[in-house]
Design a protein around this nucleic acid. Structure first.
Length: 797
DNA sequence: AGAGTGCAGCAACTT
DNA sequence: GCTGCACTCT
């Protein structure tokens, strides 16, 4: 290394560091450390995504050479001079000139793979990369584990003996199949609960255990031996149906890469840089997968936070992150501990809570942000009052000009969103519930998907069973039993038997119906490549008789189902548009794949001005200005299921930490003494997590005595715990009802609501100084709401 | 054999 | 509150 090299590399480093001057020291270090294994311990709100994106930008612009000690061959004194100029003044030359001078062997975009857990995270990464890198951004593989693996499998699954037109089974499909197997084997359903068996099989797959492995492991344990048999049969039937479940998507990819040397080498050569987000949530199979993908170049960057590991129940092992340094002794570890998201108080409270956990890698977040408000805590008498407190707090701030999208309500489980929704509908505050996949899980949408799946892959017997008699076609359980027997005996799929039903005397009774069904599906199949997807869908609705059957019912419920079915068509249109936008051919297969891999969280729209409600799990990776954590009671949060083991309690605490650190400006925690859940009243103490927050960081809110929405509690409450204290001049005490902005509602009046759309006022009932309105909305159905509050979200037409 | 009806049991987090 | 299941009717 001569003097020129030393000067060149030093100047080059200075220039590149200048390019990332906006980052803090640790962030910059993480961006510039491109080669070799890197463990990035990134606390909540520490700018992790920014680092990931800048890391990729750095790779594409400047390549791997930051650590290089040698100047490239083409560099001469002219370049040195230019670099010196640049080092002194970063704006001296245009960006592409800077890249030209500093780039040392940059990767091609397709050599980079960034893996995330949720579609939302992947989508965000992709769109930010496209903004930053333009066209090149599109060629980077920024996907979820499942999408990336599906892409690999579509190409190579033939090597494992599957057809490439495979189908993805979700938990419901899986459960149906396992229930059927248990029944066929004659096992007592009480003893072998399908759900338990399911999770056993999942666990096995997550640990890359085949049915044989599981059987060996079972020893003399009758339960486990039985599960092993069911697992083997399940695997057999999935193969016959050409179906993969969620766990298979990962572990079949691992199997593929492990057994086919050429395929593994292809990807190992290809992926020069492998980045994995949320590494603390990976399970064993995902860990092996990552190791395989990164095994060629070993430029393996994992990002995670042991304190935010909340998917242990799904098989995630925090060990993956804790062991990273042992697995790669040459790994560098960088901690990002400065939080840019939350106020000092919120962060301090969260730090205190998480500090109660043992077995942490240990890090303490700090922030330069302002101290901010204390944590608001409110203990309600019952859940209606709790909901009302939340609604009123939001409404009060809304009347002062705060947009509704500022607020997000988080809860431990979806059941809690019910009473919140009731309250918000009543007060007319627009809201959106982000739920796992409520729309996609409704019966009619499942049926529609099943039709499309069978058109795509007729061997898919689980979906076939679902639709064969929906609508009723006089093909009952007995007939399908015979079909299944014949299929097993002849080594064919059930659909193939149905297609030739007239050849089997056992089926004579139903053969005409079966043949008609097969002809309908085959007819649609023939057109699936030629007819546009949306049209194919329409023809399917018509030819299957599904739509007609619903129309014939004529009930409100049926009308709602028809709406959902039509709604799915907008999903199809949307899919076709996005596919076209990236230059891909829209296909039935592609659409189905998208359906099976998406969830509602992906559709969370941060721009709509509504209050958002979601589970704490869904909130991971998101941030909101003002957050309510509700239902903070022992038994609910932490859940009673987690009380038995320390490990599970620690996971609950991490969940609490995740929830708290979502808040940027204000954090409210509420609980209720009484709660109706699953039809029973339960009494709960405030969550232990609240006690773990130092008292001086908490501001306890009073019970409200003045209510303005017509739903006043019968008796004014006096909080027993604070009886002796002098009454504080609290916002709630002085809070007056907002001036009545409500127009004078009358029955028959046409209105338009911000969230529910157009409707007609059907009934007006005076209640105190307010009015209860009964409005029939065109799309949203009948709603009850109070005029004063709802009026602000509604206008007369 | 299939369709319709009444009743019991159940209810987390996510891809 | 909803779903799956057993039972009865056609």
């Amino acid at each position: 290394m001569d003097d020129f090299d030393i000067r060149y590399t030093a100047l080059r480093r200075a220039v590149i560091e200048n390019e990332f001057a906006r980052l803090n020291d640790m962030q910059r270090k993480a961006v510039l450390k491109t080669e070799g294994p890197l463990l990035l311990l990134a606390g909540a709100g520490s700018g992790k995504t920014t680092v990931l994106i800048n890391r990729i930008i750095n790779l594409l612009r400047f390549g791997c050479g930051y650590e290089s000690e040698l100047a490239p061959d083409w560099a001469g004194d002219d370049e040195l001079e230019l670099l010196a100029k640049l080092a002194a003044d970063p704006d001296a030359l245009p960006a592409d000139e800077v890249s030209r001078l500093c780039a040392v062997d940059p990767p091609r975009p397709w050599q980079i793979i960034a893996i995330t857990f949720t579609n939302k995270a992947a989508g965000e990464l992709r769109s930010r990369l496209e903004v930053a890198c333009g066209e090149a951004g599109r060629d980077i593989w920024a996907h979820t584990f499942h999408t990336a693996c599906t892409r690999i499998l579509r190409k190579h699954i033939g090597r494992l003996g599957y057809q490439s037109a495979f189908t993805i089974y979700d938990d419901d499909d899986k459960k149906r199949m396992i229930t059927a197997i248990l029944k066929d084997f004659g096992f007592d359903e009480r003893r072998f609960d399908p759900k338990g068996v399911m999770s056993q099989i999942s666990r096995a797959k997550e640990n890359l255990m085949t049915p044989e492995d599981y059987g060996m492991d079972a020893g003399d344990d009758y339960y486990k031996k039985t599960v092993a048999r069911v697992y083997a049969e399940y695997d057999k039937r999935c193969r016959a149906a050409s179906a993969l479940d969620f766990d298979d998507i990962i572990c079949k990819t691992v199997e593929l890469l492990q057994t086919c040397d050429d395929v593994r080498e292809e990807y190992q050569r290809r992926f020069r840089y492998v980045l994995v987000d949320e590494y603390q949530d990976t399970n064993h199979a995902q860990y092996v997968l990552c190791s395989l993908l990164a095994g060629g170049w070993r430029n393996f960057c994992v990002v995670g936070d042991d304190d935010q590991s909340i998917y242990k129940f799904r098989g995630a092992t925090i060990e993956n992150i804790l062991e990273f340094e042992h697995q790669y002794p040459d790994a560098q570890t960088i901690r990002l501990e400065q939080n840019y998201r939350s106020t000092g108080n919120i962060l301090a409270a969260a730090n205190h809570v998480i500090a109660c956990n043992r077995g942490r890698k240990g890090k303490t977040l700090w922030t330069e942000n302002e101290t901010g408000e204390k944590i608001f805590f409110y203990q309600a008498d019952n859940q209606e009052e709790e909901a009302r407190y939340i609604a009123q707090t939001i409404h009060r701030q809304y009347s002062r000009g705060e947009p509704l999208k500022t607020f997000t309500i988080l809860y431990r489980n979806n059941a809690l969103s019910n009473f919140l929704q009731t309250c918000f509908i009543r007060s007319g505050i627009p809201f959106a519930v982000v739920r796992g996949r409520s729309f996609l899980d409704s019966m009619e949408i499942r049926d529609m998907r099943a039709y499309l799946e069978v058109i795509h892959n007729p061997h898919d017997s689980v979906r076939l069973h679902r639709i064969i008699n929906a609508p009723a076609r006089k093909i009952g359980a007995r007939t399908m039993e015979i079909v299944a027997e014949l299929a097993a005996r002849e080594g064919k799929s059930e659909f193939e038997i149905i297609r030739e039903a007239d050849r089997y005397p056992q089926l004579s009774r139903a053969s005409a119906q079966l043949l008609r069904f097969a002809a309908m599906i085959d007819g649609l199949r023939d057109r699936r490549e030629t007819v546009p997807l949306a049209e194919l869908y329409d023809e399917m609705l018509k030819e299957s008789g599904y739509l007609a059957a619903l129309e014939a019912q004529g009930t409100d419920e049926a009308r709602g189902r028809i709406e959902s079915i039509q709604e799915l068509k907008s999903n199809i249109a949307e899919y076709c548009e996005t596919a076209a936008a990236v230059g891909a051919e829209p296909s039935l297969e592609g659409f189905l794949e998208e359906l099976s891999l998406i969830s509602d969280v992906d559709k969370y729209d941060e721009n709509a001005d509504v209050v958002t409600m979601m589970t704490m799990h869904s909130a991971k990776g998101l941030e909101f200005p003002k957050v309510f954590i509700c239902g903070a009671e022992e038994g609910l949060f932490p859940s009673y299921r987690s009380m038995e083991s320390d490990e599970e309690m620690e996971e609950e605490r991490r969940l609490c930490y995740v929830a708290m650190t979502r808040a940027k400006k204000e954090l409210y925690i509420t609980c209720s003494q009484r709660r109706m859940l699953y039809g029973q009243t339960i009494y709960g103490r405030p969550s232990r997590f609240i006690e773990e927050i130092p008292a001086e960081l908490i501001r306890e809110e009073r019970r409200q005595e003045q209510l303005y929405d017509g739903y006043a509690t019968r008796t004014p409450h006096r909080s027993a715990s604070r009886g002796a204290e002098p009454p504080r001049r609290d916002v709630y005490r002085t809070y007056q009802a907002p001036p009545s902005a409500a127009p004078d509602f009358r029955p028959g009046m046409q209105v338009e609501h911000k969230a529910f759309g157009r409707g007609v006022v059907r009934e007006v009932t005076p209640m105190g100084s307010d009015m209860l309105l009964n409005i029939r909305f065109e799309r949203a159905g009948d709603k009850l709401m109070m005029a004063k509050t709802a009026g602000q979200f509604m206008k007369k037409l």
